[in-house]
Design a protein around this nucleic acid. Sequence first.
DNA 1: AATGAATGAGCTTTCATTCAT
DNA 2: TATGAATGAAAGCTCATTCAT
Lengths: 208, 208, 208, 208
Amino acid sequence: MNKALKSEHEKLSANHQKLIDATIESIAQRGLGDTTIAHVSSLAGVSQGYAHFRFKSKENLLISSLQFLSNEYMDSWNKIFDDKKLTPIDQLINIIENDFHPRIASRKKIAVWFSFYSEVKFIPAYQSICQDQDQIYFEQFKKVLSDLIKDYNKEDLNADEISETYLALVDGLWQKILFDRKNYSNEFCKKLIYNYFKNIFPNLSFKK
Amino acid sequence: MNKALKSEHEKLSANHQKLIDATIESIAQRGLGDTTIAHVSSLAGVSQGYAHFRFKSKENLLISSLQFLSNEYMDSWNKIFDDKKLTPIDQLINIIENDFHPRIASRKKIAVWFSFYSEVKFIPAYQSICQDQDQIYFEQFKKVLSDLIKDYNKEDLNADEISETYLALVDGLWQKILFDRKNYSNEFCKKLIYNYFKNIFPNLSFKK
Amino acid sequence: MNKALKSEHEKLSANHQKLIDATIESIAQRGLGDTTIAHVSSLAGVSQGYAHFRFKSKENLLISSLQFLSNEYMDSWNKIFDDKKLTPIDQLINIIENDFHPRIASRKKIAVWFSFYSEVKFIPAYQSICQDQDQIYFEQFKKVLSDLIKDYNKEDLNADEISETYLALVDGLWQKILFDRKNYSNEFCKKLIYNYFKNIFPNLSFKK
Amino acid sequence: MNKALKSEHEKLSANHQKLIDATIESIAQRGLGDTTIAHVSSLAGVSQGYAHFRFKSKENLLISSLQFLSNEYMDSWNKIFDDKKLTPIDQLINIIENDFHPRIASRKKIAVWFSFYSEVKFIPAYQSICQDQDQIYFEQFKKVLSDLIKDYNKEDLNADEISETYLALVDGLWQKILFDRKNYSNEFCKKLIYNYFKNIFPNLSFKK
DNA sequence: AATGAATGAGCTTTCATTCAT
DNA sequence: TATGAATGAAAGCTCATTCAT
């Protein structure tokens, strides 16, 4: 790829990304119901026609925004397992830290996730984008937990159920962050999660 | 009130409730964004003009529907505390049973709750219905938990944090029910919740 | 139907018909390409939204206009055969007179017919509306012609082929009327048609 | 013109013709209304920008395409009169054979002609291409017919009216081909035309 | 009390056209 | 010569709302 082509491509990607960022921004600012192509385009600094030209339809722009968040999350998740030498306990800590990292669990981004949860018509789109990934996260989380259970001789614990509980808890806490109730800082969420695991593994230290 | 007037009033109320039921049905079927007065009226079997005449505006119909759901939940919640002789442990059990009772935690109603949740930040009326109530539930739940902690001499437990965790967990599990992932029957959800509390109160029996 | 309801219905039909008339008018005035809902609504004196409310889509409004013309033609055609005592020659004359009657073969209405001929996407719609009718016209015309052939002992003539020729000729002449070339008055068209039949039935008098 | 320039010019012409062919293809496939520069360019295998660069405007591309069809027909027509020794009867036969030759009277090209026909009234450029040519064909056809009438001593026949009838009949039959009604093969059309002339000139042989 | 025809503001979408490269 | 990203005007369409009945 020569320089001119590369710069061309970067410009292309830039506007594509600008529109996705603007969509996320708009959903967070005014909700899905009042998010219009006109507003998104204006936020992105491109013409309304261009947004359509680029994404074919409003629905596709929304779905692309979900896809972006999904990819972003997947990347951050995979990074955790890049380091093969991590102990199960450190893996667990890294997962929790990642799930409530401001880049992942910002109100802006959570707003988009919940927009997809809130409109039944998006459920098929959500499933086609996230279902397989969600299954992978579940399996990998269960693996971490199983290792931890083995390491600490707590074989009476059910890795499956604890994993389900953790994943549900993350979603529930994200929702509290979105609603912006008192105390629901990301730090507070992590504290609740750590407390949950401290109860399960009383002898474990979750010091980072 | 004479008989004629009463029957008149009942008819009035009947149409009122028909429209609210139809609104909930519509939101569950097609989402908030695609819920139109035309569709709701048609589901309710009344004219579009009448829906307006009765609720003044679409927003007011939506608010009334949310209020209805909120009242329904509140009624079921309050019933738990009607019996003054219940022990804290039975109160906790009743809360959990109620939160995952099919009448409360049906996919239809969960879909509607999530629809409103996602707009809560932008519509003050939703905020006062959802969040103010949430605060009340939080306080009452914390009271139950505090009693439990005291009864079982577990004063090192933090009622505040456990309450937050419980409420987050309920929302997280409701979402799993909505998205219909494997295993997420209401019974399975309750099992996860009970496991959570068994870990916190190891000596406690959660037999109903 | 009481008076109020009837007047209501007439008003309804009136606007429906106004829009169809306006569509025909617009196609004749500016062609299919420049016929917009905005212009049609304005011609009809109703709002743009109403045109959509009434006809669901632009395409459906266009198709409804074709349907109207098709019905109108069918009615005029059927009237010819109401009188059971007509001789074949009078039936033939009546068919020709009808096909070039100003109410049927006006440039305004021909413009609509040709709009449907001109857009391949309308061919399915045309066929579903007109195909069966066209077959009926063909059969009935052939019957008239067969009677005529029998009456005048011209059994060597092929009723089938003459009927096809007649129907093609009508369409071809309608097109000439539409293009408004010199001499193509409806009277001139009829003269050409009569000449065609005089050649086939030299001893026949086509005096009305 | 040197070799390089010539090849350059051929490439230029090639793209020019590709776009015209694609335009005709597109109109036949989806109609004039749904023919877009984007689709035409894509069919032609060139960029959208290039189509504009080459034809300045969409209207000009359409006009050029109509002009191409018109020239093609004119060329085929003129070839008939190249041979100065043809008898009038052979000229007539050649005209008929040409008008229903598959290269001229294919459904694809008929569809395109009808698309332009329907807009002829509104676009002066179409008018000058279609209607002015039509006048020439009419005059030349009348000349052939007049010669035929003279040769066969049928001076009571009206060359003018027969010519008009023939031209109308061709258009009417083309339309039947377009709509693909039963029996309307090009051969069947020719048979109907020949029958028409056999009736007018009973002693004539139309053997090719 | 209840209807439903009619409105119009505002949305999504389309597409010929432009222009920097 | 040829590209394709980007524009913006104008189209089709939706829908809460109004209002005469």
